[in-house]
Design a protein around this nucleic acid. Sequence first.
DNA 1: ACGCTTCTTGACAAGTCAGTACAGAACTGC
DNA 2: GCAGTTCTGTACTGACTTGTCAAGAAGCGT
Lengths: 207, 207
Amino acid sequence: MARPRSFDRDHVLHAAERQFRASGYNGTSVDDISAATGLGRGSLYGAFDGKHGVLLEAMAGYFGRLAQGPRKMLDGPDEGALERLHAYLLRAVHGVPLAPDVAPASDRAGAACFAAKMALEVGASDPEVKRLANDCFSVVRAAVAECVRAAQRNGDLDPDADPDDLAYLLLTVIRGSDVVGAYGHSPDRLTSIAESAFALLPRPRHT
Amino acid sequence: MARPRSFDRDHVLHAAERQFRASGYNGTSVDDISAATGLGRGSLYGAFDGKHGVLLEAMAGYFGRLAQGPRKMLDGPDEGALERLHAYLLRAVHGVPLAPDVAPASDRAGAACFAAKMALEVGASDPEVKRLANDCFSVVRAAVAECVRAAQRNGDLDPDADPDDLAYLLLTVIRGSDVVGAYGHSPDRLTSIAESAFALLPRPRHT
DNA sequence: ACGCTTCTTGACAAGTCAGTACAGAACTGC
DNA sequence: GCAGTTCTGTACTGACTTGTCAAGAAGCGT
């Protein structure tokens, strides 16, 4: 019937995401997006709905990828749940909350959670961004909480601890490492932060 | 000799900080700063050096205020160090890393650490902002580490734990609560995050 | 009271921004 | 091969941006 699109939508959104990450939302112009994606202005406005539309769709795409990561790494049998949580924590503080098969970003700053970055920059005045970011946080938190519960069932964590509280705390550590880690601290430091957090998780009291 | 300035420099910088907080760096125009501070364009360029200069000085002012808060709350005798740490944590996760005499901000989002916000938005391409933010983090971290050491000396924390590791971890929790707390979570949730973190601090093993 | 220096105000110019419109290209279906 | 539809690229517009400049106001010292 008509001419098909000559670009891959997801690929374009990913390129836009990188650009937003590097320069922030207000720091990137439509021309920047155009250059980063290779698309002309017209195509951008046709396929998405301008700059804001690109952001929302890029965040949605990020959410889609993000949602699978923790589940893949954390879901599973009760045995090994604590080890899975350990492995996930170590990855997540380095800004790689995705599945094990995606390579870590070369620079920690660029790897900071996209949702968190956008939420902090424009979330206060942009309810849609705020909501998308919250979705990102929730999906991670839910997966972590479930993994904590599994570890509790397996007797690896104190059953009296509130798994939701622990999940919130771990999520907070992960988000915090985006900020702390992005600027001035070595990967080793991030690793030791993750190890410290993990080591402090409440073990069952062996009576 | 000459006409003196008709405005209070610190007051202006504080107003600019609020504006930067609300709209981000790239999201606020010089006119916005002008409106927020009441200063005309010319005065802004005369007193500071344009928008970027205002940001740097506002961050420096923030640093100055920030640096005193943790010290005031955390420094002191070894007895009570753990309690001081507890009180500080509770305040800090609510975005009030300042001295006890400054009132908490009404909105958690606006209270997110100014340095962290700016660093995340423009730090990647702005070394000066990056450095200032790191200074802010360091001063808090050093005060926390010292307080941890005091608590260890007093026998309230496990002396085998690395105080610097703990300080990094706590700083990360505080920074993370800027992000987690700013969007969608209640103050109660933040309090419980702080309490969880505090409860997990390694107590001395009573043989 | 006067001159000097600095501050303040408003306006200005050059550049950039987002979004639109239009013309041409490309592909599908027949 | 042709018609129709959609995509693509570019040029354009109006608004907004930053930084500068010059003229007037305000205080200080004498």
